[in-house]
Design a protein around this nucleic acid. Structure first.
Lengths: 184, 184
DNA sequence: TTTATAATATATCAAGCCGATATATTAAAT
DNA sequence: ATTTAATATATCGGCTTGATATATTATAAA
């Protein structure tokens, strides 16, 4: 049972086990929804993945006439099939690949000594604000009726964002130096 | 000044500003060296990147005869040029792209309710061990003579690993449930 | 000593992903 | 009435990923 990377197909199936969705709605789950802080997948992967899943019979395409006067609309809602459910369960039974973090900001800060101080300060401020924002957002979410697995994941995201934000805030002087911050 | 993603070329230049290196040595920096916990780049990106950098005159290739009886060896050591230094400084002056985290394990745990309990426990144990390991490793590193920027980054990695490990350990029962753990 | 294993080192390739872009419709705001 | 934002599908070039092939050198084991 070797560690296998989650591909776009599996990520789409994961969204669809929670309910029918369009490609656009699937994308939103990764952009600002429940997966936003630990997975990402774009349209360039989602639409080809959905086409392949439909080919393999793992999802079905349903045309939902939302409004009354539907002449012709190419909006496609996808639904997971029983075969798709089995495929997703098989993916859940594998060993996951190790976490991967890509932080270009950290790479920059690593070379702080070579950076323009004003730019370094700007990068630092953006970074701290970003992590504080993310933490605040997770705190606003309503835990009502959410399964334990998802609350566990949400809590882990919060712990991560807060720990990093606190570290950044507490170690400002190590990175930026102690110049008098009179000017804006 | 839009946020631009660091490509393999920039990552290689970053390593080379710290000293000459072979492609293999560059890879090690991202596999187990100082960049290991926030960037990754493989041979499939490094060697083409070095070739392009050499084409553009941003690095030079030097043949270092390490041993005395060097008949012919295709070991290539790369050195950054002045143009390469300028290119790297330009990269440092840009706004970095936001952090990206890919955690397949978290994706699995999100669907804990659909997982086999024994497998969930195995995934949980591996994950906690992995984060504890990473934190311990960062603690063993010697801070002697390391520039502040790099210590800041190292400390942030440690804060991250420890916060996540602590969260995982403290919230075990939420994910796994409270069955009597008699059996191994 | 000879053999086997691990580490060093370069390179390529298919498959897949990423970011940008094009296009069109519908809802909301000015 | 017009502009802007949101919804929605789709594609494409460039790049990265992970695996694989190959060869040499150093270390460990038999």
């Amino acid at each position: 049972m070797p560690a296998t990377g989650m591909d776009a197909k599996t990520l789409c199936l994961g969204v669809l086990v929670m309910g029918d969705a369009t490609g656009y709605e699937i994308r939103k789950m990764f952009e600002e929804g429940p997966f936003a802080h630990f997975q990402d997948v774009g349209y360039g992967s989602i639409y080809p993945a959905l086409a392949k899943l439909a080919d393999e019979g793992l999802v079905s395409v349903i045309e939902v006439p939302e409004n009354s006067h539907s002449d012709k609309r190419d909006k496609k809602t996808y639904r997971i099939t029983e075969a798709g459910q089995r495929a997703f369960n098989a993916a859940l039974a594998k060993l996951p690949a190790p976490d991967k973090i890509r932080s270009d900001t950290t790479f920059l800060m690593f070379f702080a000594e070579f950076m323009d101080p004003a730019h370094l300060r700007a990068v630092y401020d953006d970074y701290l604000a970003y992590y504080r924002d993310r933490a605040e957002f997770l705190k606003t979410l309503d835990p009502e009726g959410v399964p334990e697995g998802r609350l566990f994941v949400r809590g882990m995201g919060l712990a991560f964002y807060e720990a990093v934000a606190d570290y950044i805030a507490e170690n400002r002087s190590r990175l930026i130096g102690e110049e008098a911050d009179a000017a804006d």
